[in-house]
Design a binder for these strands. Structure first.
Lengths: 148, 148
DNA sequence: CGCTAAGCAGTATTTTATATACATGTTAAA
DNA sequence: TTTAACATGTATATAAAATACTGCTTAGCG
């Protein structure tokens, strides 16, 4: 049971931006910092932008900013938005052709379990991911801490 | 977020055997009934056998039987046994090299969510998957209902 | 005794989802 | 008008999972 890297990267982008505060960050910078594919990250960024999580600024000296306060970004919401396929088993997905589906109780049970999973994430926000360790995170991501 | 078909097939094998009751079922028969790979199913079956879920009988007129009552087979336990990789994101897996892991709170949060997921499954058993619909399941799986 | 139907085990191939790379376009500041 | 950023679409590569193949072992039956 895995989430995709797509979702993982979305989380990392948001963490990076949260730590940066009001300073713009570029995709290139974030990709470098985490050592991941710049191109893949770009798609994640576009998605986050379309969904209203971040603001993108084109052109020279462009970059990215959070559009909402970290306290207002729910992890549950994010996972629902970025993890495109949450159908845990075949019977929960499109094109299901498991023959016993009409009589089998797997579906409601796994749905309940998935809801419990997401409910936990709903209780946390991006702010909870940073906690009191923002300076340490900044160091790890090699962000030059901006003078306030 | 998907479980593997491996886990899915394990569930189906157990359901099949539960409906069959004390009659033996062959791997071939189960694979045919669900229209899935006989070879893959065989590996699932071996695993289930090693873990004590089912008893296998070799030789002519051999086959498979449940080793425990359906009420005693927990779904949570089964998923923990058959879903080999439960590390949802990179930082929960071996070989993690996400640079912010030391300061990031993703790990405990996703662990909590995973525990909530499994806790729901822990509340159900194989018997709950059948419910009162055993005859309907038997029909769907094309099991000739054995006279009691 | 040996044939046959079943499970056992290891390896190899195929498939699929995901991730990555590439090529080109658009925007806006300097 | 150049340059540094994001935008978009397509193609390729990678890795995990599923499936197939080959040969072996066990045990009932005639």
């Amino acid at each position: 049971m895995h989430l995709t890297r797509y979702t993982d990267y979305a989380l990392r982008v948001l963490i990076f931006l949260a730590v940066k505060g009001d300073e713009r960050a570029t995709i290139h910078e974030i990709a470098e910092s985490f050592g991941v594919s710049r191109n893949h990250l770009m798609k994640v960024v576009q998605d986050l932008s379309h969904r209203g999580y971040i603001t993108t600024i084109r052109g020279k000296h462009g970059g990215l900013l959070l559009s909402r306060a970290p306290e207002e970004i729910s992890l549950g919401g994010l996972v629902r938005d970025t993890e495109h396929e949450l159908g845990l088993v075949e019977c929960l997905r499109d094109g299901n052709d498991c023959i016993i589906t009409p009589a089998c109780r797997l579906k409601p049970i796994f749905n309940e379990a998935l809801e419990a999973f997401l409910a936990v994430l709903d209780r946390y926000t991006l702010a909870d991911m940073l906690g009191p360790r923002q300076p340490q995170l900044a160091r790890l991501m090699q962000i030059a801490i901006s003078p306030a």
